[in-house]
Simulated assay, not measured.
Amino acid sequence: MPRSIWKGAISFGLVTIPVKLYSATEEKDIAFRQVHASDGGRIKYRRVCEIDGEEIPFPEIAKGYELADGRMVILEKEDFDNLPLATTKAVEVVQFVAEDEVDPTYFNKTYFMQADGPGTKPYVLLRDALVKTGQCALVKVALRSREALALVRPRDGLLVMHTMLWPDELRSGEFAAPPETVSVSDAEVTMAQSFIEALSGDFKPEEYTDAYREALEEVVQSKASGVAMPEQTEAPKEAEVVDLVAALRASVEAAKKRRAEGSAAATG
């Protein structure tokens, strides 16, 4: 069982729900080390003070905030622990909202919420009430040295919490919008809709894998064993798209063919 990363309570009106938080995700990536290319020796970094030039052990390193006038304010662990902030040990419910009202761009990280001790019954109460009303709890919480908005919602019999970015942390994407002078025809939109319908289906994440990570693992194993990788066939060059309707029509046919082949393989 993983270790909890935070322990506190949900403030649900006058009801207090003691909870523990567990990280709900983990990135599965290949970890590389920085090495000397000629002999494979690992590259190590030293923490050196720019004033006295001495290497500083980790326990002696503190966090500093540089003021506009150049002065450095040193903050210790106690300063963070004793912040005059109610949300350091509490998940404060500030509003209830429908889940589809929150743009997914705001979501940052997901946590499992586990009832702690006497919090089981009020935990179940909040979970069931959210399910019946179709609402989610918008909360404020302090995690990892910062306060964040978060969305608490029921999922698979438990409560999960998605921490969120603040509005001023989201960049404007106006620069990426196509010029208003560009337009498409009704026929092109219709064919695009046909392509979307041909590939529509239920979301089944277990059907997808990280092909890039798998390819990297093959390369690592190949170099470790001294066996050369088989030559890759050159990918066909994509033709320049001149007629969008014709390209989409061909895409629809290809999508239908792939879906038919996939169904045949599943039943066979």
Rank of each mutant, 00 (worst) to 15 (best):
S4W: 08
F12V: 06
T16A: 13
I17M: 03
L21G: 05
K28F: 02
D29V: 00
V35Y: 00
A37N: 10
G40E: 10
I43C: 03
V48I: 14
E54W: 04
P57C: 11
R71D: 10
N82L: 14
P84V: 03
T88P: 02
K89V: 06
A90H: 04
V94I: 15
A98E: 09
E101C: 05
F107P: 00
G117K: 11
K121Y: 05
R127A: 05
D128F: 04
D128V: 01
L130G: 12
K132S: 15
E147T: 07
L151G: 01
G157W: 13
D168M: 14
E180K: 03
V184S: 07
V184F: 15
S185D: 07
T190E: 13
Q193N: 10
Q193H: 13
S194K: 09
S194V: 00
S194L: 08
L199I: 13
S200N: 09
E206R: 13
D210F: 02
R213P: 00
E214I: 04
E218P: 02
V220T: 06
S225A: 06
S225R: 13
Q232W: 09
A235L: 15
P236T: 11
P236L: 08
D243G: 06
V245P: 08
A247W: 06
A254I: 04
K256P: 03
A264Q: 02
A265T: 04
